[in-house]
Design a protein around this nucleic acid. Structure first.
Lengths: 215, 215
DNA sequence: GTCTATAAATGGATAGAC
DNA sequence: GTCTATCCATTTATAGAC
């Protein structure tokens, strides 16, 4: 506003775009730090000071970008939701994986890879202030609904084709897949130090789809 | 000490036993409150003030019984571990359930029942101060080892008898069973409001042992 | 051992200069 | 928008009277 009255406007559009890109880059760095810390120690144990320190800016600057700690966490959840949507797109574009059942397996595998990479933010489902921030975040809710719808279609298709147990309610299958994102078995097995990440994922994938029982 | 020089000792043994019983009863009330709060909101979100309020005593009195918040949590874990051991005893004494595979199923079911009843304390595995309190707690460590050993025996027996997938490392099976204690799917499905607790447990039991895949 | 009162530290959030 | 400095509520833990 004030600069407009003092400076020529020729370069204004480009400059504003540049500034906005810087702005977005900074916010991306913030969300990355939040994402990592949420994956590492969870929402309650993560402090805003830590986030600021990891990004390398002052805490007050953080609050210029995000109005509260809850919004920081919500931004991280939006990002991971978008990553999930991008993966689903990739999967649908992949001619090698067209069977819905195989796609569900691929989703579960991806989910666990993200968790083992320390990039899966996990939030407590009980915290009410956090739930409020999430349920009022349109980007998050829309993303969650979109992911659920697409997975839901694959689930019912897999049940129709006879590869997935048709006795299980689709919602139970959906939640079971979601739960792989925070399955503590991955961390337990990693802590045992006996298996590689790939081996761990394959084992949990087998127990998830084939069960503990012998076939 | 001082009372000993002032009062006759005839009734001392009984009286001391009574006092000790009161002491234990109070500690039991404390651990119950901690157990409930840990199940409801987790370690970080639980405050010592809440515990004191729920028990109905002053916070300072709490610290006469337990030296730190971590020790409170450890006591709750010891208690649930003892409950688990008692259940294993019960199971071994039950002539109706002698097959190791059925025993493992029963353990998983019990674990989920406890969680759905809001009585399963859950701790973050990352918190270092908490890990220190747990790993230095002999009662807890011994209980955990004992439970793991007994389950481990049933696991290998079930694999030998061909009911449990022999390709899975026993430790992976063990961790998978432990993970039912904090499986978020139970809470998700409960939140959906479509199924009874018994139905929820049966569904998760099926997915755990039979897998999502059709048989 | 129970209480009231308080210390000591932390953490979320903001004021105000630049 | 970034910083320093600070506010204020909360939280773990303790002091000291009874």
């Amino acid at each position: 506003m004030t600069t407009a009255t003092l400076k020529p406007q020729a370069a204004a559009p480009a400059r504003r775009s540049f500034r906005e890109q810087m702005h977005l880059a900074r916010e991306d760095a913030i969300v990355s730090a939040v994402n990592r810390l949420l994956a590492e120690k969870g929402f309650e144990a993560m402090t805003v000071d830590e986030v600021a320190a990891e990004v390398g800016i002052a805490k007050a600057s953080l609050y210029k970008h995000f109005p509260s700690k809850e919004d920081l966490a919500a931004a991280a959840m939006v990002r991971v939701m978008n990553r999930a949507l991008a993966f689903l797109d990739e999967l649908e574009a992949n001619p090698q994986v067209t069977d819905p059942y195989e796609r569900l397996r691929a989703v579960a595998r991806w989910t666990m890879q993200v968790q083992l990479a320390g990039e899966m933010p996990s939030l407590p489902s009980e915290n009410s202030t956090l739930r409020a921030a999430l349920t009022t975040n349109k980007a998050y809710v829309d993303g969650l609904v979109s992911v659920s719808d697409r997975l839901g279609a694959w689930i019912t298709a897999s049940q129709a084709s006879g590869r997935l147990n048709p006795q299980l309610p689709p919602i139970a299958v959906l939640y079971t897949l979601y739960a792989r994102a925070c399955d503590p078995v991955l961390g337990f097995l990693k802590g045992a130090g006996l298996y590689s990440d790939e081996q761990i994922i394959e084992m949990v994938l087998v127990t998830c789809f084939d069960g503990l029982r012998a076939r």
